[in-house]
Structure formats: C-alpha cells, structure tokens
C-alpha cells in the first residue's frame, strides 16, 4: 500500500538526495504503477506506450494551452487511455461511465484519499 505520507513528503518520507519527490500526487503514482503492471503482464510493449506518450507531448508542445502548465502525468494519462482503447483492454465509453458513477458519489467518499480507495477495493 502506498503510504500517502510519503507522497506528501511528510516526516516519514525517504531521503531524497536531490530533494524532489518522485510523484506530485497519489494519482500519478497509481497511474504509473498501473501502466507498469500491465506492461509487466505483457498486455502491451513499452514502445507502444512510448510512441503515444511522445505524440501527446508533441501535441501539447505544438499548441500549448494559454497559461497551461506542462503536466507530464496528465499527458501520460491521455496516452495510456488511448493505449487501453487501441489494445481493446478498456474502451473510453466504459471508462467515462465509470468516472461519472464515481463523480456522483456523495461527499465524504473522497477518492483522493488512498486509504479510502484501498478500503473500497475490498468491498
């Protein structure tokens, strides 16, 4: 279980020789982990993902949104969603439907809390 205090750089954070956290938010680390897990399971080749990631980065750089921040993992996410659809692993419409369901949850079920996410997982 990823310890949220690590991601937030709390007292329990491991030493960082260069003073920078690996992930800025828990969702970035989950996204990274999911991507690698599927690659390890040989559901895709890394190069297939890399190609899409390059495309997303190029697209952003060709037309940077006004005042938009370059958010690396947002581009990673866009690339990964495309990969899942291309490989027939998860369609965009199915993902959107699930996101809408989660978004409709009553307040208090905060998905951003990894603890909560892990509890929900076991239900």
């Amino acid at each position: 279980m990823a310890d949220p205090t690590l991601a937030l750089g709390g007292a329990a954070a491991p030493p960082r020789r260069n003073g920078e956290l690996v992930f800025e938010a828990p969702w970035e680390s989950r996204l990274f982990g999911v991507t690698l897990a599927l690659c390890e399971a040989e559901l895709f080749q890394w190069e297939e993902f890399r190609r899409l990631l390059c495309e997303e980065i190029q697209r952003w750089e060709a037309q940077p949104p006004p005042n938009g921040r370059f958010h690396y993992y947002a581009l990673w996410q866009a690339a990964f969603e495309r990969l899942l659809a291309e490989k027939g692993l998860l369609g965009l419409s199915e993902l959107e439907a699930s996101v809408r369901t989660l978004a409709g949850r009553p307040a208090g079920h905060d998905h951003a809390d990894p603890e909560e996410a892990s509890h929900r997982r076991t239900r």
Partner: peptide, 21 residues
C-alpha cells in the same frame, strides 16, 4: 469527472475487475 484522480481510480478499478491487474 475530468479530475485525473477520479479517472485513474476508475481506470484501475475497471482493469482489476477485468482481471488484467
């Protein structure tokens, strides 16, 4: 619904349900 944290949570849950993860 555009919140990336929400999308990643949904994505992980769906892939787990499908047995990929």
């Amino acid at each position: 619904p555009r919140d990336p944290a929400l999308r990643v949570e949904a994505l992980e849950a769906l892939l787990r349900e499908k047995g990929f993860l």
